[in-house]
Amino acid sequence: MPGPTSAAPAYRRGAGFVRAVHAVSTLCGWFAAACTIIALFVTCHMIFVRAVLGQSTIWQTEAVIYLMIAATVIGLPYVQKLRGHVNVDLVPLALGPRARRVLAYVTLSATLVVIALLAWHSWHIWHEAFDRNWKSSTVWAPPLWVPYLVLPVGFGLFVLQLLADLVALATGLDAPFGVREA
């Protein structure tokens, strides 16, 4: 019985990386869901404090805004993993296999460049807020580096998911636009 070969088949060569990134993206989805649920409870608390107790709220509105931004940005990799972003399948389905593959590479590469730029610039914004100890101008006045941190983290994880999608496409783990040829 022959032993394992030194050259792994191309379809297995990035599988570990792709699985690891998919696991991280799934955790991002759970985190986004948790942020949304927490925001719901904070909103209910805010309504109770205002309507029933007749008091003003200090931190609730801002906290809900920050939680929903975190849910949106940290949830990006999970939505990408599920192919849940808005897309138009008409063009890829009308193309032949080779053109569909080229379009998939162009689309993923362009998205990767744009999101990497967003990650880079959001890191600078976060760093400036952290360095200068910016605070919100509200009564609550939380340090802004905390909510700003979700931007470079979320966009960075989105870049990682896009890289995993490129690896999956290049190694045959995934078909272009999920369309396998018969």
Score class of each variant (00 low, 15 high):
77 P>S: 02
22 H>M: 09
160 L>C: 04
125 I>M: 14
68 M>Y: 10
83 R>D: 13
29 G>T: 08
84 G>P: 00
122 S>D: 06
10 A>F: 08
116 A>Q: 04
171 T>A: 02
44 C>Q: 08
128 E>N: 12
127 H>I: 09
140 W>Q: 01
33 A>E: 07
73 V>K: 01
27 L>R: 08
126 W>P: 11
144 L>D: 05
55 Q>A: 15
83 R>V: 09
41 F>S: 00
19 R>S: 14
150 V>C: 10
180 R>M: 12
51 A>R: 11
172 G>M: 02
130 F>H: 13
140 W>I: 06
162 L>T: 06
49 V>Y: 07
44 C>L: 15
140 W>S: 03
43 T>I: 07
165 D>Q: 15
178 G>P: 01
25 S>V: 02
161 Q>E: 04
84 G>N: 01
28 C>N: 03
149 L>D: 03
166 L>H: 04
47 I>A: 12
56 S>P: 03
35 C>F: 08
55 Q>E: 15
107 T>Q: 08
16 G>E: 13
82 L>K: 14
149 L>K: 06
81 K>D: 01
87 N>H: 13
26 T>E: 10
121 H>N: 13
158 F>L: 07
21 V>N: 03
132 R>K: 12
122 S>N: 09
116 A>S: 10
123 W>M: 08
159 V>Y: 01
19 R>W: 12
100 R>A: 01
42 V>N: 00
107 T>Y: 10
18 V>M: 07
13 R>V: 10
90 L>R: 14
176 P>Y: 09
27 L>I: 06
98 R>F: 03
169 L>I: 03
7 A>M: 11
50 R>I: 12
8 A>T: 12
74 I>P: 00
124 H>N: 13
53 L>Q: 14
113 V>T: 09
155 F>P: 07
116 A>V: 00
67 L>Y: 00
71 A>F: 01
119 A>H: 03
54 G>R: 08
154 G>E: 02
61 T>S: 13
84 G>H: 01
91 V>W: 06
179 V>E: 03
76 L>G: 07
136 S>L: 07
98 R>E: 10
